[in-house]
Simulated scan of single mutants.
Amino acid sequence: MDLEKNPDACVRFDRHAVYLGTPGGRQDCPARLRGRTEALLIQPATAAGSAVTENRTARTYQAAADRIVVTAAYGDDRGSIQRILRSAGLPVATAQAEQAAAAPVPADATSFRGEGFDACTAPSQSAMNAWRDASDYGAIGIYIGGLNRACAQPNLTAAWVRTQYANGWRFFPLYVGRQPSADGGSCGGGCSSITDPVPQGTAAADDAAKQAAALGLGKGSVIYNDLEHYAPGGTVTTRVLAYIDAYTERLHQLGYRSGAYGSVSSLITDLVANAQNITPPDVIHFARWNYESTTTDSAIPASLWPKHQRIHQYAGDTTETHGGVQISIDRNRLDVD
């Protein structure tokens, strides 16, 4: 895909593709994509020299060479991506760890009460400015990492986060880790599933905290583990609860707060039924597309997550235009303190 000829193309890593050029400022992405496979984004750069970093948890290489920078995603075929990078003379064997933490924005960055939206890829600065001036939204969901994060994030940097915060935006960071099943629910067959929940939930928390810190979202921030819809019961429920329990416990050890995103009819059902049996997430982000902008729901007792600990995703896969800028989004009502 030639991004110069197709500037609105969505750069996505849930299908085999090679993207050449700089992603456009207004990528035409669906509101929600999940999954990961082998794909390449090759962009022009000015720096010389070769360097490679790898995030094994998120299954992504970042490589720089003479006049190019490469983002290489992989699903189950890491070897093919390594061969491609080696064929370009990139030192895969000596890949380093990813970037260090950035200076954190203030601690209220993930606190907000009001209307918010989430989009598959972080919008450009001009789009954020237009929506800030022309819409009622004040918070944005950003997909900070995870091996099932499908959309590329060319705009999502620590500088971008600082600028949005200074402009009045607040955030609900989403981490798309392992899913309840590899072939079920809305995540689809390209997702990596929960198979060994405790170490996988712990590893997800370690990586989520690292990715948040690299964006300037410091300790005390809420990081929401995105778990797509599934049919609750039996082994899948047991694995999901153990995964979220381990994720929450580890985030607490790292100084972060735990959030969990899921459907009222799957994850939230399981969390409500087992709130006394696990360490529950500090905040829930529940999906019920009933077009009611409220954080109360008949499936969630008032005694659970009662103190500004809820987000309701009340509409999804919708397209809105504000200030002349169109984005595909999900709508959310936040009450997070």
Rank of each mutant, 00 (worst) to 15 (best):
A134S: 15
P23S: 08
F286E: 10
V176A: 08
D136I: 06
F286M: 11
C10L: 03
A72Y: 10
G218V: 01
G324L: 01
D118K: 01
G168W: 11
A166C: 03
G190T: 13
R34N: 10
A102H: 07
A88S: 08
T53A: 12
N225I: 13
T295S: 09
E54R: 12
D133C: 02
S258I: 08
P280E: 07
T57N: 12
E320C: 04
G75S: 05
A64T: 13
A158K: 00
V198W: 01
Q43Y: 00
D335Y: 13
A63K: 11
G323R: 01
V105I: 09
T269W: 03
A103F: 05
A122G: 04
T57D: 10
D330R: 08
I81E: 07
Q125K: 05
G79A: 15
F112W: 05
A58D: 14
Y261N: 07
A119R: 12
R34A: 11
Q99C: 10
V336T: 10
A299K: 15
V161I: 14
P232Q: 05
S126D: 14
A9R: 14
G138K: 03
D297L: 15
Q313E: 10
A39L: 10
G145N: 06
Q326F: 00
E54S: 04
Y19Q: 01
A107D: 07
A287H: 09
L40S: 03
R333P: 00
T237S: 15
E249S: 14
A182H: 11
R113C: 04
A182M: 11
Q276P: 02
D297I: 13
L41Y: 12
L147I: 06
K307I: 10
Q200F: 08
I68R: 12
V240K: 00
A101F: 08
A100C: 03
H16M: 09
G262L: 15
I223M: 00
A246H: 08
T235V: 06
N290A: 05
Y165H: 00
C10A: 06
C151K: 04
N55M: 02
C191G: 04
V222W: 00
A73L: 02
A122N: 02
